[in-house]
Amino acid sequence: MVAGIPTLWLLVLFLIPFIIVFRISFSEVRLAIPPYTPLLSWRHGAPVLQLHWSAYRFLFTDTLYVSSYLYSLKVAAVSTLCCLLIGYPMAYAIARSDAASRPVLLMLIVLPFWTSFLLRVYAWIGLLKNNGVINNVLMYLGIVHHPLALLQTDFAVYIGIVYSYLPFMILPLYANLEKHDGTLLEAAADLGARPLRAFLRVTLPQSFAGIVAGSLLVFIPAVGEYVIPTLLGRTDQIMIGRVLSDEFFENRDWPVASAVAIVILLLLVVPIMLFQRLERRQLEAAK
């Protein structure tokens, strides 16, 4: 019973919904309720299976979709890399600080996460827009004479994603770096390794699992990100999460929206399985 109730809940509200999405992606759109054709129909007393590939064909022939997928992967990859470059030194500094200040520093990292994600993204509109805080400061200092176009650019999306997902990068990295054995570094130093070399040869390889976990926690949700590109991003190039939502709400094309979802899942299936394996290993190691 302990396992049964949550399993049943997730079966009905997590797994079965995916099967429904998969099913509808092989339908055709029609003007009715529900707005798609049934897969199974009865003809002369026998069931007929009707699989339509039109939604998928549409996805791969219209360049809008392909370019949105590629753009989303690029944005997610660049943002993940930036998160790693900013988050790693931060996690390292926290792991190396004295035991008393560590909880405080960790709290400072997590605290923004507890305040509204939407409002924190919104705050960047006020900072980045043409007469926003950053441009006002730059013009006041005389560094620029005309406001820089910062909002509705790729740069704004990177800032937004890095800003929102940074704690997800720092926490697994910290959990990993905190466990490192200092004697290995001392041994490396005794053997004459300079600090940078010791870091590259000892610390970095040891923290590999943390790097992978943090990167996956940022990359996977970033691919399907909807709020950040909608509020901060370009209008001429949209990300795939927005495409899905627009297909569903604006075009009311449920089969194409479902097919978009299935293709995102296919792109993410390897990273998601990698993440689950890491998660399992970490919990087993904690025992």
Binding site: A3, P6, T7, L10, L11, V12, L13, F14, L15, I16, P17, F18, I20, V21, I24, L216, L217, I220, P221, V223, G224, E225, Y226, G241, L244, S245, F248, W254, A257, S258, A261, I264, L265, L268, P271, I272, F275, Q276, E279, R280
Partner: peptide, 27 residues
């Protein structure tokens, strides 16, 4: 069913929200 439960509890954490939202509505 251990693998099933473990998989189904880990997946929603990283699943892009548009996909979860769409699939729940269709359900």
């Amino acid at each position: 069913g251990r693998m099933l439960l473990a998989g189904m509890t880990a997946a929603p954490i990283v699943m892009p929200e548009v996909i979860t939202g769409l699939s729940l509505l269709l359900l």
